[in-house]
Design a protein around this nucleic acid. Structure first.
Lengths: 150, 150
DNA sequence: CACATATAGTTAGCTTAGCTAACTAATTTC
DNA sequence: GAAATTAGTTAGCTAAGCTAACTATATGTG
């Protein structure tokens, strides 16, 4: 009879999403740090693990961070032996970054540890809510990445 | 025929959600700061605007932050005349916080400004995706708040 | 009642993560 | 081959989180 969807105003959705993201990340920080990888480090490392070797600029772009920020993150991860720099044979200004074996192991461990937190919590949601969260994550990624936020 | 839902492993959902939240907030930071309120300030102010006057400990708990962190956020917002401290008549150790008129106005302005960013982007999504984001925000909030992440 | 303990908030000081500006070195372009 | 561009780093700033230690008030108990 009534085909209208009760559609919360976009500004409300935006506010709630914003606050929810802030609080969720605050909450996850402890778990992250206990695993030996900060959130930003884990996120960058996952790009390297899944995306394969790439140079610093590409990684910074993928993570939507400025080069100096990524440079520091990489320096720290390198100091812990988690990533390796190789000179780029095709451009001697550049470097190629890739995870070390230790880096991959650490990433898996952090992932496991997050499993006892976020993914444990997610796993306890009804299946359809899990699917919803997955889709929401994809949408958030697209929003963060797209031109709509300029 | 096949009733099985293709259910991404919870760890994958967790990873994607984690990275998506990090990137979305990074992306929003500029807009936030251009509006004169940082993300954490806007979030705390919204709690005061919608939740009414409360003391510092309650606000810190609502924002899932330690008291010293909230104390600093409040001090900064107070310096800009956005929130007011009143002594708590029932406990002279405590303070009661409430937004000033300027604070409410600033909150609305930040909200508007975010409208030109996040909520503009959200408004351009299909209606069902908007509803999905709203539900996802509620779930994230519940996860951040609940005991599941201990 | 007095003293011990607990609680609300602040201060001090540390860390991490973001940024811009300025620099070096290599590459590309004209 | 000189000029302009690009990749990455260094230096230095700010914001936001934390713990530890402190002050002042409340509360509870012998």
């Amino acid at each position: 009879m009534c085909e209208r969807v009760v559609n919360p105003p976009a500004a409300d959705v935006a506010d709630r999403l914003h606050s929810a993201a802030i609080r969720l990340l605050r909450r996850l920080r402890r778990q992250d740090e206990a695993s030996g990888l900060s959130g930003p480090q884990a996120s960058a490392l996952s790009v390297l693990v899944f995306g394969g070797p790439m140079n610093l600029g590409a990684l910074a772009a993928a993570e939507q961070v400025r080069p100096p920020t990524m440079s520091r993150l990489v320096r720290e991860m390198e100091a812990f032996g988690l990533v390796q720099r190789r000179p780029d044979p095709r451009d001697r200004r550049g470097v190629i970054l890739e995870p070390t074996e230790k880096g991959r192991a650490m990433f898996d461990r952090a992932r496991e540890r997050r499993l006892s937190a976020l993914s444990g919590a997610i796993a306890s949601l009804p299946v359809e809510d899990q699917a919803l969260m997955d889709r929401a994550a994809a949408l958030m990624m697209a929003l963060a990445r797209g031109p709509a936020l300029d």
